[in-house]
Design a protein around this nucleic acid. Structure first.
Lengths: 219, 219
DNA sequence: TGAATCTATAACCACGGGTAATATTACTGC
DNA sequence: GCAGTAATATTACCCGTGGTTATAGATTCA
């Protein structure tokens, strides 16, 4: 907020705002990175003191950049969503011109990118879900952004094929939750291969329970 | 721990254990109920002091019945799982003899019971997810119990129809996550009717993306 | 009654989020 | 250069909450 206040008409005020902000530009990002480091190291119980120490500063500085702990959590969640949505968009890039036949390929790539993402940074996810209430605006924003991206693709394909696009948003939420929880459960014990997991989920999303098992044993 | 120490050989020790435990039988359940009450009233930030006060006792008594805060959370989660699984079993009762045709009915009932459950006690769910890490054994137990019940039904039907039962457990996890997140998102803004939500999720589970929209507009 | 013991309480400790009061650095005008 | 000023950083502190200890109150058997 107010990164560079514009000049006012009074001379006194001009003198005030003339002073350059000594706040380094990339500082906030560096603090976020330090917070992430300590979260990855000590787990979800990372304290504000520890994060400040990791960044080589003290607590009040942290509170200057992020209003409070909640602000830091929100910033982390936003960054999380940025990377995740970017990856998903990449996987869904050519989904618009996907026909029914290669729809499985799009779904497969999207699920794989999601699974890979929550797999490679479990600490951040754990920190967010533990310290933010499930109704936390930042977490809702993450879900809505991811689901929104998916819902857009579904809606496009449905309308292109003459289907009712209304369920798209519910479907998108369902898919997000499905991949998320199944991925988290899989990451715990890894009883099947990663490929099997993604294949199974792709089958479930694409053809559902009544159709998912069919290709394996065509009766 | 040591709810009733067994008799030793010394007479003195025998005299010790002769004294009846003055701990009332239903006390633990009453304390759990009081904890639930205060959680429903003040939200996820309910403290141990508040819960003790609600039950008309003080903190150390609470710590005598539940080892620590984590023990109370575990007890709440277990109770949560008990009721949820019981409801699900009821909905899945006649799923074993379900044919392909009425499979949708079983799925529909199961999803409806789940949605209804997380809808009617959001405070408990919020408390659990906020105060327990996502890898908390008690939460994992809830997920595994629910998913296990669903996986059993899927596996039975798959094997009965000559399909490969291996993906059943992944499918179950996926379905749990799907209904859960879609239900939570729906409970926030309720932009569609409850029936539409359950119908959509049933379609997604049963026939997937490629088949879900078909019945609405058969091309 | 009195000794022994289980139970509950009040007072306390530790620790983490959050915030003044205070010191330090850097820039401006003379 | 040198004050004066404003931004920045630090130390020390407050407060609430999980968890424990020292102590008082019941209750049972002799």
């Amino acid at each position: 907020m107010t990164p560079m206040p514009d000049l006012t008409d009074t001379v006194a005020a001009a003198a005030v705002v003339a002073r350059t902000s000594r706040r380094p530009p990339g500082r906030r990002e560096a603090l976020l990175a330090a917070a992430l480091d300590v979260i990855r190291r000590v787990g979800t119980s990372a304290s504000m003191d520890e994060m400040a120490a990791e960044a080589g500063i003290t607590k009040p500085v942290l509170y200057r950049y992020f209003r409070d702990r909640d602000g830091l959590i929100t910033a982390l969640a936003d960054q999380f969503a940025d990377v995740l949505v970017a990856r998903l968009q990449l996987a869904l890039r050519d989904a618009a011109r996907a026909t029914q036949t290669d729809a499985d390929g799009v779904i497969h790539r999207a699920i794989e990118s999601y699974v890979g993402f929550i797999e490679e940074d479990p600490a951040l996810y754990g920190f967010l879900t533990q310290h933010a209430p499930p109704e936390h605006p930042a977490l809702i924003a993450v879900i809505e952004r991811v689901a929104g991206a998916i819902a857009g693709v579904i809606r496009d394909n449905f309308t292109a094929q003459g289907f009712d696009p209304r369920p798209a948003v519910t479907f998108a939420h369902g898919i997000v939750g499905m991949v998320h929880l199944a991925g988290a459960s899989w990451a715990r014990n890894r009883d099947i291969s990663r490929e099997e997991l993604v294949d199974d989920l792709t089958a479930l999303v694409s053809r559902g329970l009544t159709g998912a098992a069919t290709p394996l044993q065509p009766r």
